[in-house]
Amino acid sequence: MMRFGLAVLAYVLPTFGLGFVWHLVLFDDYYRALHIYRDDIIIPFGLLSMLIQGGIFAWIYGRTLAQSATSFGSRALLYGLLGAVLSWSFTTLAVAAKNIMTSVPGYLLIETGFTLAQWIMVAPLTVLAFRRSVKDSALAQA
């Protein structure tokens, strides 16, 4: 359960931090020019969404890759690719398909960049969260 909680945090903390800085500071003017976001963004809804996503992604990792005998880097890369493609499908493609904006290609470009940056951080942190300590491994072998 501790690993699951750490994996949720491994998703939520970098996603929230990066999301806040990316969307509301660094590229605020870019997003305003797209005319896609409301003026009064509801940050608690975004945080709740990230908590739900973090729980689901942690569960997926725990069920599919956590016990893999592959290397740390291989698990991080595979999980990062899986997470990025899945996230991109519902945070980028689906939004571009149904929201009014001044430039769909512009939105796809900026959000693809965000998704890549997000999963470059989230994937290795999640692998670390599920990593067995030396003490845990010794106890499991005994």
Rank of each mutant, 00 (worst) to 15 (best):
W22V: 06
H23L: 10
L26K: 05
G19S: 05
L9V: 08
A7H: 06
Y37F: 14
F27M: 03
D28M: 15
A7T: 03
Y37E: 12
A10N: 13
R32C: 06
G17D: 09
L26V: 07
D39M: 01
D29S: 12
A33E: 02
F27I: 02
A7Q: 02
L34N: 00
L24K: 14
W22P: 00
F16G: 14
L9A: 15
V25W: 13
P14H: 06
A33D: 03
Y37P: 07
A10E: 08
D28W: 14
P14V: 04
D39Q: 03
I36W: 08
G19A: 07
V21L: 11
T15V: 14
V12A: 09
F27R: 00
T15H: 10
F27E: 02
R38F: 00
A7R: 01
G17C: 14
A7F: 05
R32N: 12
H23K: 09
D29H: 09
Y37W: 14
A7C: 07
Y37G: 08
L13Y: 10
L18M: 09
A10D: 11
G19P: 11
V21K: 09
H23P: 02
F27S: 01
A7E: 09
T15G: 13
L26I: 13
A10P: 13
H35W: 00
D28N: 15
V12E: 06
L13N: 05
F20K: 09
R38W: 01
G17T: 14
R38A: 03
L26F: 13
R32Q: 10
G17K: 10
V12G: 06
D29N: 13
D28V: 15
A33Q: 05
L24T: 11
D29F: 10
V25F: 12
A7V: 09
A10L: 09
D39I: 01
L24W: 12
L9M: 14
L26S: 07
V25L: 11
D29Y: 04
D29E: 10
L24I: 03
V12T: 04
D39V: 03
D39S: 08
Y11E: 08
F20A: 04
H23E: 10
F27P: 01
L34R: 03
P14A: 08
L26Q: 07
W22A: 00
D28Y: 13
V12D: 06
V25S: 06
I36L: 14
Y31L: 14
L9Y: 11
F16Y: 15
Y30E: 01
L9Q: 10
V8G: 02
Y30I: 00
V12P: 05
A7S: 12
G19D: 10
A10Q: 12
D39P: 01
W22K: 04
G19I: 11
A7Y: 02
D28A: 15
G17W: 11
H35D: 02
V25N: 09
R32M: 05
